[in-house]
């Protein structure tokens, strides 16, 4: 995980921009009233990516060595897996 500014912009600022952009993608899918398993899993995947970015860059876990690097990533897999399983079996 690089912590150096890229194009003169801090990593956390890049991450903030990505989070905002991904939020608008999710909102657009919802606003179009689109549904179905594939889109639901796409939206869930976007949420997990966003969660990973928050954990790694905002919470500062991405720079750690050892077990404390992983709790947020593991947590994202737990509800993510439960939600994905439930949506797969309900379609």
């Amino acid at each position: 995980m690089s912590n150096k500014p890229f194009l003169g912009i801090l990593p956390s600022t890049w991450v903030y921009g990505i989070l905002i952009a991904l939020t608008f993608v999710t909102y657009s899918i919802g606003e179009e009233g689109l549904g179905g398993l594939e889109l639901s899993l796409l939206v869930l995947g976007i949420a997990i990516i966003k969660g990973h970015l928050v954990g790694a860059y905002f919470m500062g876990l991405g720079k750690l060595r050892g077990p404390w690097r992983w709790p947020v990533s593991v947590w994202l897999i737990i509800p993510g897996g439960l939600i994905a399983t439930a949506f797969i079996f309900s379609n």
């Binding site: 939020t23 999710t26 976007i46 949420a47 939600i83 949506f87």
Partner: peptide, 10 residues
């Protein structure tokens, strides 16, 4: 970040 898509979008 999980609650929003789960309840409002998916």
């Amino acid at each position: 970040l999980i609650l929003f898509p789960l309840v409002y979008v998916m």
